[in-house]
Simulated assay, not measured.
Amino acid sequence: MTAPAPLFAIEDVEKQLGETFASVERTQVEWFITRATAEMRRVIPLIDDRVATGELDPVLVTGVGIDVVSGALDAVRRGRGVRSVQYPEFSTEYFKAAADELIALSPWQIDQLSPVVAEPGAFNLSLSGGE
């Protein structure tokens, strides 16, 4: 079984970050895109349908995906498990990196991709079965 196409491309990531990835890093970013796409589809199961029908803006989907990939790329460049590095006195703060830390959607990102739910308000119930 072939996996569906990613929700965004490496060129999108390069455009937003203003850089061109060389061979090894390019392969890594492509894998991050694959993982981010899978995570977005897992968390928002109808994401492809909503993009296809125009209910969800593909630019928004691409932006969220790029943000996830960018975060993973930053974590790898900084060093997994490194919380902060300070200069000129060199000091590094470490933490135990969780397995899902590299590719994960934040609650805000999930909210951006989730269907808009109407605010609860007053409503009428018809007891006669009519509308």
Rank of each mutant, 00 (worst) to 15 (best):
E101A: 15
S91R: 14
G65V: 00
F123I: 09
E25V: 14
D49Q: 15
S106C: 02
A5H: 07
R77C: 00
P107L: 00
P45F: 11
A9W: 05
V13S: 04
S91Q: 09
P115V: 14
T62H: 01
T20H: 10
V24E: 10
I10D: 03
E39L: 11
F123L: 12
V116G: 05
F32N: 08
I10T: 13
S106L: 08
S128W: 02
E55D: 14
L102V: 06
A38G: 10
F8N: 02
P107S: 04
G81R: 07
I10A: 11
E119G: 03
R35E: 14
E89D: 11
D100H: 12
A3G: 03
G63M: 05
E19M: 15
V61A: 05
G129R: 04
V51Y: 05
A98V: 05
A5E: 09
P58Y: 00
K15Q: 11
L60R: 12
Q86K: 11
V43C: 08
A36E: 02
A104Q: 09
V59W: 04
M40H: 07
G71S: 07
A3M: 07
S128P: 00
P45I: 08
M40A: 05
F32A: 10
G129E: 00
A3F: 11
F95M: 09
E93H: 05
T53H: 13
S23E: 15
E25Y: 05
L102Y: 04
L102M: 11
S126C: 14
N124W: 12
F90V: 08
A38H: 09
V85K: 13
G121F: 04
A9Q: 11
Q16I: 14
V76G: 01
Q109S: 03
M1Y: 10
V29G: 06
S114C: 01
T53Q: 12
Y87G: 06
E30G: 08
F21T: 07
R26H: 13
I47P: 08
S91N: 09
G79C: 03
Q109Y: 01
Y87V: 14
D74K: 13
V116A: 13
D100K: 11
W108Q: 10
D74R: 14
L7K: 03
A72I: 04
D111F: 08
L56N: 04
I103G: 00
E89S: 10
Q112S: 07
S70M: 05
P58C: 02
L105R: 01
I47W: 07
L56S: 07
V64E: 00
K15E: 13
E93K: 10
W108N: 04
M1A: 13
T92M: 12
S126N: 13
S23C: 04
V76I: 14
A104P: 00
Y87T: 13
P6C: 09
R50F: 09
L7D: 00
T92F: 02
L46V: 13
A36P: 04
P4I: 04
S128G: 12
R35I: 02
V116M: 06
P6I: 06
S106V: 01
Y94F: 15
R78P: 00
A5L: 12
F21H: 10
G81I: 03
F32P: 04
S128H: 03
S91F: 03
S128E: 12
S70W: 06
L105E: 03
F90I: 08
V82E: 03
V29K: 07
D74L: 11
I66M: 03
S126T: 09
F32C: 10
E55K: 14
E30K: 14
E19Q: 15
V69I: 06
R50D: 07
G63Y: 01
S84P: 02
R77M: 03
